[in-house]
Simulated scan of single mutants.
Amino acid sequence: MKGFVQNIESLAVDNEDFRRVLYTAKHCQLVVMALKPKEEIGAEVHKLDQFFRVEEGNGEAVLDGVRTAIRAGFAVVVPAGAKHNIINTGDVPLKLYTLYSPPNHRDGVIHHTKAEAEADTEHFDGKTTE
């Protein structure tokens, strides 16, 4: 079967890695993330659209300077060109998944920690999961 059909809530909640690319299609990419307490993705701007959904924990979404509290069940849509950040404001890991459109990372990449992600210069190389 082509495509990706799995329980994304379980995958996101069970994930312990800062970033884990699960599936890369030609025009979008599915990634799970876990932010440790007080950890943040870091302010960034993409030339692509991005969607986040929080599965567990509490945090803050910052889009072009506007801060909004987020928690399990919240979705955040970041249009291309918006400066954004996701911050874990809680005392437990913030578990979420994100969709990049188009893909942003190399297919299958796993960054166990934020430091590992920051040290890696990887980027989407055009190779998809299938």
Rank of each mutant, 00 (worst) to 15 (best):
T128I: 15
P93S: 02
D14E: 13
V62G: 03
K26A: 15
E40V: 03
A61L: 02
G42A: 07
V54W: 02
K2G: 05
G42E: 05
H123S: 14
L99F: 10
V76C: 00
R106H: 04
F51L: 13
M1H: 12
A115Y: 05
Q6L: 09
E60F: 07
G59N: 05
L11V: 04
E16Y: 10
L48P: 12
G42L: 06
F74W: 15
H105Y: 12
G42V: 08
V77I: 12
A69G: 10
L99C: 02
P79E: 04
G126N: 12
F124W: 15
E55L: 09
A75L: 12
T129G: 07
D91Y: 06
R71K: 15
V66W: 07
D14W: 01
L63V: 09
K114E: 09
R106D: 03
A119I: 07
E9Y: 02
P37C: 06
N7H: 13
K26S: 15
Q6G: 05
T128P: 01
K47S: 14
D17T: 08
E122F: 12
N88P: 09
G42W: 11
R53H: 01
V78A: 02
L99T: 13
P37L: 02
K26E: 15
F124A: 10
G3M: 08
K38T: 15
L96H: 04
E130L: 07
H123W: 09
K83T: 14
Q29E: 11
K95C: 05
I41S: 14
I86K: 05
I86M: 07
H112Y: 09
Y100D: 05
G59K: 01
E130W: 12
K114R: 14
E9L: 04
A12H: 07
